[in-house]
Structures are given as structure tokens and as C-alpha cells.
Lab assay of single mutants.
Amino acid sequence: TGYYDVLGVKPDASDNELKKAYRKMALKFHPDKNPDGAEQFKQISQAYEVLSDEKKRQIYDQ
């Protein structure tokens, strides 16, 4: 599964769309709200870390 799929956004998503999707998913799977969501929360955080950084995103998109 790709990072875009993890966040539920298209590859041409804007920074604002990425942030909005990340916040929505992070709230849904945060371990405090969803004890079984810890692994998914890590994936969401990693996806956002890469896609929100312009240089990392360019490398990922290659």
C-alpha cells in the first residue's frame, strides 16, 4: 500500500489536503482512542512525514 492510499488522498493532493487527511486519520487511529490502531497510526504518521516534506515527496514519487 502506498503512502497516498494510507492517507486516502490522490497523488496530486495539495499540502492542505494532505494535512486535513492526516489529521482525520490520526484522530481515528490514535492509540488513545483506538487501542488496536497503534500500527496503523504509525503508518499514517510515516506517510505524512514523507508526503508533507517536499524533498522526501519528490524522491518518493520517482
Rank of each mutant, 00 (worst) to 15 (best):
V9E: 02
F41S: 02
Y60V: 06
S14V: 03
D53H: 06
A47E: 00
Y3K: 02
V6Q: 06
L27E: 14
K55Y: 12
Q43S: 07
P31H: 08
K55T: 14
Q62M: 11
D61M: 04
M25W: 08
D32G: 10
D32Q: 09
K33D: 07
N34W: 08
L27K: 13
A21R: 00
S14C: 07
E17M: 06
K28I: 09
Q40R: 13
D5T: 10
Q58R: 14
K19P: 01
S52H: 08
A38H: 12
P11I: 07
D5E: 13
N16W: 15
L18G: 00
D32L: 12
V6H: 04
A38R: 08
A13L: 05
F41E: 03
E39G: 04
Q62V: 08
L18W: 00
A26H: 14
M25C: 11
A26T: 09
V6K: 03
V50I: 11
D53A: 06
A21K: 02
I59W: 13
D53V: 07
G37N: 11
K19D: 09
D12Y: 07
N34K: 05
K42T: 07
S45R: 15
K42Y: 11
L27P: 00
K33F: 15
K56V: 03
Q43H: 09
V9P: 00
R57W: 02
S52L: 09
P35G: 06
S52Q: 06
K33A: 08
L18A: 02
G8A: 05
Y3H: 03
I44K: 01
A38D: 08
Q46R: 11
N16K: 14
P11E: 05
G8E: 05
Q43N: 08
Y48G: 03
A21V: 04
E54R: 15
S14I: 02
K10C: 15
D15E: 13
R23L: 15
G8F: 03
D36G: 11
L51D: 01
A26D: 02
G37Y: 15
E54H: 15
Q40W: 13
S52G: 08
F41W: 15
E17F: 00
T1Q: 12
N34Q: 04
Y3P: 02
E54N: 12
G2H: 14
D36M: 10
K33Q: 09
D12N: 12
I59G: 08
L27D: 14
N34P: 06
Y60E: 02
Q62W: 06
G8N: 06
D5W: 13
Q43L: 15
L27T: 08
L18H: 02
Y4K: 01
K42C: 09
I59P: 04
A26S: 10
D15Y: 15
K42H: 10
H30C: 13
K10Y: 07
D61T: 02
K28A: 08
S45V: 15
K20R: 13
L27S: 11
G2Q: 10
D61I: 06
Q40E: 10
A26M: 13
P31M: 08
M25T: 02
D36F: 11
N34T: 08
V6S: 02
K20P: 00
Q58A: 14
F29N: 04
H30N: 09
L51K: 04
Q62C: 11
K55E: 09
D5G: 09
Y4I: 00
G2W: 15
K28T: 08
E49I: 10
G37H: 12
E17S: 03
F29T: 01
K19Y: 14
S14H: 05
R57E: 04
A21E: 00
K56A: 10
Y48T: 02
R57N: 04
A38L: 11
P31T: 09
L51E: 02
Q46W: 10
E17A: 07
Q43V: 13
N16H: 15
G37R: 07
K55M: 09
Q46G: 03
E54G: 14
L27M: 07
I59A: 11
F41M: 08
L51I: 01
Y48W: 11
A47C: 04
D32P: 09
V6Y: 04
A21P: 00
D36P: 04
R57V: 04
Q62D: 08
E54I: 14
V50N: 04
G2P: 10
Q40N: 06
G37M: 10
F29M: 05
V6W: 07
P31L: 07
L27R: 11
E39Q: 09
M25D: 02
D5R: 08
P35H: 05
I44A: 04
K33N: 13
